[in-house]
Computed example of a mutant assay.
Amino acid sequence: MDFVDLSKYFVLVVVVACLIVGYILKTSFESFPNKYIPTVLAFTGLVLNLTVSGMSIENAVYGALMGLSSTGMHQAFTRFIEGNTEEK
C-alpha cells in the first residue's frame, strides 16, 4: 500500500471539521486541558467519518487517524506562521 491508496480514504470535510473543533477547544475553553485535544479530535474524526463514509471498522480507524492528523496539521501550521522550531 502506498500513499495513493490512502488518499481514497481521506475525507477533507472530516479533517476540516476536526481542525475547527480543535481550534474552538484551544481558544474558547481555557479550562479545557490541551493534552486532551488529540483524544477529542480522534473521537470526533471517528464519528464524523462513520457518518460520512458508512459504518465499518476501516472507516472508524481512518476517521480517528484524520482527527489526529488535524492536530499535527494545526501544530505544523502554527509553527510555520510563528517561526518557532522549539516547544515553549
Rank of each mutant, 00 (worst) to 15 (best):
F10S: 06
V21Y: 09
S7T: 07
K35T: 11
L6S: 11
G63Q: 01
L6V: 08
A64F: 00
I37R: 00
L48G: 00
F43Q: 03
F29K: 04
T51W: 15
T51S: 14
L6H: 10
N49V: 05
G22A: 09
L6W: 12
F32H: 02
E58K: 08
L65W: 02
D2C: 03
V47N: 01
Q75L: 09
S31T: 08
Y36H: 12
V15M: 05
S28C: 14
M73T: 13
V13H: 07
L46Y: 02
I57C: 07
A17Y: 01
N34K: 15
N84W: 05
G54N: 07
L65T: 08
K35Y: 15
I24P: 03
A76S: 11
E86I: 13
T27C: 13
V13I: 09
Y23D: 06
L48K: 00
A42H: 04
T71H: 12
L19P: 00
R79K: 15
K8M: 12
I57Q: 12
K26L: 13
A76V: 11
A42D: 06
K8T: 13
T39S: 15
A76F: 12
G45V: 00
L68T: 03
F77C: 08
T78P: 02
Y36L: 13
K8D: 12
V4E: 15
I81V: 14
V4K: 14
V40R: 00
C18W: 02
T78I: 10
S69M: 09
A17S: 14
I57P: 02
Y23C: 04
T71F: 15
I37M: 01
I81W: 09
V13P: 03
A42W: 02
S56K: 03
T71R: 06
A60V: 05
L12I: 09
I81M: 08
V61W: 13
S28H: 15
G63L: 01
F3K: 05
L19N: 01
A60S: 07
T85P: 02
M1T: 12
I24C: 06
A17N: 02
M73W: 12
E86F: 12
F10E: 02
V4G: 05
L12W: 13
Y36M: 07
M73K: 05
